[in-house]
């Protein structure tokens, strides 16, 4: 069964979301049967904000929620029963309708022009499926110069869906988009970046564009490449522990705090030592990157990235 076929199944997102929500929030009751308004989504988004606050399970739940929403959007038939999230097609229709009927005063993206910003409107935040937006459109607000508009129920629902989608876009702006346009990142000078790579950056001490970095720009999405260029996580530190007897034990660092050092030795076994009887020497392969963070200038940063992006 292909992923697409799986996604077409209407029950799948419901089960995924319910399972993820239960898993993440099983210490309290949190089962949403309808679109919870911005607060509900904010709850998820805010979790991503501070790693120390949440952890991976929350991020996964949000990810599952995202997939769920996206899948629901593909399946209008499942929509109303689950989350009231606007399906993409309706929102598309709503976008056109809004621009034609409302955009002149409220701006084509609803962020306000002559008329108020509707993304920040309390009425929109409280609206469900056009139940509050509808009367305003039909009756207008003569005291504020808004004329009544004769739109059908379906048209009003489409406009409401568009406005809810705009609010969600604002809330989702607290996350980095998965696909970030490369052209926005390419503000540096690749030739200058090459000079930095080969010179002041000191990159060639460990890296080679024909060796480990060959085709690096194909390997990573632009945002990931930019982050890894500055600090590539995941490399284990090497450690040497010298015991009072003079014996030296070497391996990959597993744990280090003020009291304990632990390593995995060449034979694959875990060993730990109390630090009050051991001298510890750690060799961090990322030490040069850590030092780079302190000294790289904004222009070197963008030049170097432009250079790495040429390594297709």
């Amino acid at each position: 069964m292909t992923l697409y076929m799986l996604l077409k199944l209407p029950w799948l997102p419901v089960v995924c979301f319910a399972a993820a929500a239960y898993w993440s929030f099983r210490d309290r009751i949190w089962i949403s049967t309808r679109w919870p308004g911005p607060a509900g989504v904010i709850m998820s988004v805010k979790r991503l904000r501070r790693k120390a606050e949440g952890g991976k399970r929350l991020a996964l739940c949000v990810a599952v929620l995202g997939v769920t929403c996206a899948t629901l959007a593909r399946n209008p038939g499942t929509r109303a029963a689950q989350t009231d999230l606007p399906p993409a097609a309706e929102s598309e229709h709503g976008t056109q309708l809004f621009r034609q009927s409302c955009g002149f005063c409220h701006g084509p993206d609803a962020t306000g022009a002559r008329g108020p910003d509707l993304v920040r409107s309390p009425l929109v935040a409280h609206d469900v499926d056009g139940n509050l937006i509808g009367p305003v459109i039909r009756n207008g607000r003569p005291d504020r110069g808004m004329p009544p508009l004769a739109l059908s129920d379906d048209q009003i629902k489409a406009i409401a869906a568009f406005l809810h989608d705009r609010l969600q876009q604002a809330i989702r702006s607290a996350q980095l988009p998965r696909a970030y346009p490369l052209e926005r990142l390419l503000t540096g000078n690749a030739a200058a970046g090459r000079r930095y790579f080969e010179g002041a950056g000191g990159c060639t001490a460990c890296h080679s564009v024909t060796g480990d970095l060959k085709g690096i720009a194909r390997k990573y999405a632009p945002l990931d490449l930019e982050a890894r260029m500055l600090y590539p996580e995941g490399s284990a530190s090497a450690v040497t522990v010298t015991l009072p007897s003079g014996e030296k034990v070497q391996g990959n660092l597993e744990h280090l705090d003020e009291f304990v050092v632990a390593l995995r030795d060449a034979s694959g076994w875990y060993r730990s030592f109390s630090r009050d009887r051991a001298q510890v020497e750690v060799r961090n392969p990322l030490a040069a990157h850590r030092e780079l963070l302190d000294r790289i200038t904004p222009s070197d940063f963008h030049d170097l990235f432009a250079y790495l992006e040429t390594l297709k």
């Binding site: 962020t111 702006s173 607290a174």
Partner: peptide, 14 residues
């Protein structure tokens, strides 16, 4: 467009 909400995000390195 007109910034609303966070309008951006930072990515932690170290």
């Amino acid at each position: 467009g007109k910034p609303e909400g966070w309008a951006g995000r930072d990515r932690d390195l170290w």
